[in-house]
Design a binder for these strands. Structure first.
Length: 112
DNA sequence: CGAGTGACCCTAT
DNA sequence: AATAGGGCCACTC
């Protein structure tokens, strides 16, 4: 059974739903909020598999505030459009006004 | 079980 | 600011 996997998916989706309108979060941030530190990639995969139209997936970006899609991609345009519609400023494929707390990630990824 | 891939992240140059 | 290198996780072949 994929109970565990389903639970993880639900947790991630819930975390994404927690993002307030007009604001954005990073994949790693979402993963951490979902109780899955270091599984940012998993979040991305879940999003690719997700089919919930009510899910604000467009509020999920990379840590740099960059959209995780190539500019020519359809998803990029869609996400950019939706973000702008919510009052988020997007320039050159990157969002302004965000700062995904890197300090926490540093503790986890920062190996040194 | 090894190798390849991806809507990722970090450090260093 | 942009590029290069290394790492971690989950899935597929």
């Amino acid at each position: 059974m994929d109970d565990a996997r389903d639970a993880v998916k639900s947790a991630i989706l819930a975390a994404i739903r927690t993002i307030p309108r007009g604001q954005v979060r990073g994949y790693g941030e979402v993963a951490r909020l979902a109780g899955l530190p270091g599984r940012a990639r998993l979040v991305a995969r879940i999003l690719s598999e997700n089919d919930d139209a009510a899910l604000p997936w467009h509020r999920v970006l990379r840590s740099d505030g960059r959209i995780a899609f190539p500019e020519r991609s359809k998803g990029y345009l869609e996400q950019s459009r939706r973000l702008k519609a919510e009052g988020v400023k997007v320039e050159s494929g990157r969002v302004r006004g965000i700062r995904a707390a890197p300090t926490e990630d540093e503790a986890l990824w920062g190996p040194r």
